[in-house]
């Protein structure tokens, strides 16, 4: 995830420096890559919590605190990946973007 996000921005900055607009399909892919982070982090954090056993569910658990924070972040509209997945999928099949913010 981390490598992908940084590579995406390397590309965006390279386009900006060259005075070019990044291709719409790339922008749609970058939006999806960004939005899906919260879903993936919630899933990975859940696995760690389970593996930590009862220490992960006690009040004061640092792992649980971080899990709650990660969980909360997925409530932000920019971190809800489904619309970006649908848009990217459609574009990969040749449809026009349906996301004006991409």
């Amino acid at each position: 995830m981390k490598g992908t996000l940084f590579q995406n921005f390397d590309h965006l900055m390279a386009c900006a420096r060259a005075g070019e607009v990044t291709k719409e399909l790339d922008r749609a892919r970058f939006r999806f890559n960004t939005a899906v982070v919260a879903d993936q982090c919630v899933a990975l954090s859940s696995r760690m919590l389970k593996s930590a056993g009862s220490s992960g569910i006690r009040h004061g658990s640092a792992l649980l605190k971080q899990h709650h924070d990660i969980l909360a972040s997925q409530a932000h509209i920019a971190n809800i990946a489904d619309p970006f997945a649908i848009n990217l999928g459609g574009m990969l099949f040749g449809q026009a973007s349906i996301d004006p913010s991409v």
Binding site: K2, L5, A35, V37
Partner: peptide, 14 residues
């Protein structure tokens, strides 16, 4: 805009 902003609310999660 959205490329820059959206990373501001996904990066802390990571």
């Amino acid at each position: 805009f959205m490329q820059v902003f959206s990373r501001a609310v996904s990066t802390p999660t990571l």
